[in-house]
Nucleic acid binder design. Structure first.
Lengths: 233, 233
DNA sequence: CGCTGAGTTGAGGCCGTTCAAGACGTGTGG
DNA sequence: CCACACGTCTTGAACGGCCTCAACTCAGCG
């Protein structure tokens, strides 16, 4: 008698969103038997730069920032991961320590999958391996674009780009504000600038009538103006 | 009777350096029969951003820069590829147009391998697929570090870092100068700055006694001072 | 009511961009 | 052989973006 249990990987909706969908029912069952489900509170770390990971983390709910400390002590946010994304596979694949830290931006539910299961599937299931490869290739392309943006664009352009990114990836709440709420400091850490510069730039966007703010919330009003800025006039 | 022919992939030394070493003798023979060997002159493009690639390029000799145009018209060098490296696999894997251009920094010999062979091997040879995956994971880690450097470090630090990179990856000539000679503009495009800033920074390095220049050639004299600068004092 | 953390604003200054001009080296054609 | 052009390297000067430090506000919270 099989009782349907949504905490089982076989039945987890999240799985449809990522590379795990290439796994067979049997592989998923094995994983489910050894996975650990965990709750993470806003602000807590899932893992820290330099740790040796013994598996990967699959996000069931919530949002996490992936960041890296630079030599001068500031941290740079490289990616924001959300429901369905798998964190940590890069370092598990190369069998190195992680180069990133993962911190929860709001309360999260995360499944930990021991690395041995990943290795087993990578060694036996070629369509899974290929799916992971394609995922990695896309991440790499994204990273390349990020490098160019960091190197060549102004802080203004990068902040506008970040707002677009937040809108496209996390959507709007009922009032039309960006659903994902970040502190000004987080935004500054995404674009790689000081928090003051970030605040000042948002103030000028507001003055130009491109955005509206309400406490921490931000609403994009004149999307076209922002896009024109991003493209460079 | 097998005549030994070093232009055959089976016998190519370069193969030992990259993911192709995971391929079987049969696979290599198939590839060798359909590959195209080509000579590229300094300054010529191997492929350009936005092109659809029908295969990958394996470098037999010479050095190539991989760069991407930013919206403001400057191009950003993301990687310098040399003997043994395979270019273009990322976009072949995701079946997209390339996001990078490849231009020869000196005279090159390059083998073009049609993508169908790649797909065949990715579908049948899991240790090859895994090797490509690991390679991609390492490229991604490198790209992450690049983002942080671009976002958080000064032009001075990035130029010092570039010098270290050139020394580590391409070595020195008989006089102790960096073997790979780049124009000041290329260096500027690596660190993402204007060529004048690059020149001035190199001038101060020279004044401090950290490097010596001889025309386009650069010799690192005080390595430790450079490294101290990179780490942030 | 003081504490803490986030948001905001001002002033000063450095770093890097931009434009402009000149020096140098190399190759070309007369 | 010289004259010239062209590309690279170099330097100067002015401007402005962004960083840094410092103060102040405001809200939530004990």
């Amino acid at each position: 008698m099989n009782d349907f249990n949504e905490s089982r990987c076989e039945n987890c909706v999240v799985r449809q969103l990522n590379t795990l969908k290439e796994l067979s029912k049997e592989e998923l069952k094995r994983i489910s038997d050894s996975k650990t489900s965990m709750f993470i509170k806003k602000g807590e770390a899932i893992f820290k730069e330099g740790e040796k990971l013994n598996g990967v983390f699959c996000i069931r709910s919530g949002v996490s920032k992936l960041s890296k400390l630079s030599d001068n002590g500031k941290d740079q946010i490289l990616k924001i991961a959300t429901k369905g994304e798998v964190m940590g596979h890069r370092s598990v694949i190369t069998e190195e320590k992680t180069n990133l830290s993962a911190v929860a931006l709001n309360d999260m539910e995360v499944c930990f999958i021991p690395k041995q299961h990943l290795y087993d599937s990578l060694n036996s299931n070629i369509s899974f391996t290929k799916a992971v490869l394609v995922q990695m290739a896309e991440d790499l392309k994204f990273a390349d674009e990020l490098v160019v943006n960091m190197a060549q664009k102004t802080v203004k352009q990068r902040i506008a780009e970040t707002l677009r990114y937040l809108e496209n990836n996390f959507g709007l709440d009922d009032d039309g504000y960006l659903k994902l709420i970040l502190t000004r400091e987080d935004i500054a850490n995404i674009v790689g600038t000081a928090k003051e510069a970030c605040i000042r730039t948002l103030a000028t966007f507001k003055k130009e009538g491109w955005i509206v703010t309400d406490g921490k919330r931000i609403k994009i009003v004149d999307e076209k103006a922002l896009y024109r800025l991003i493209e460079g006039l």
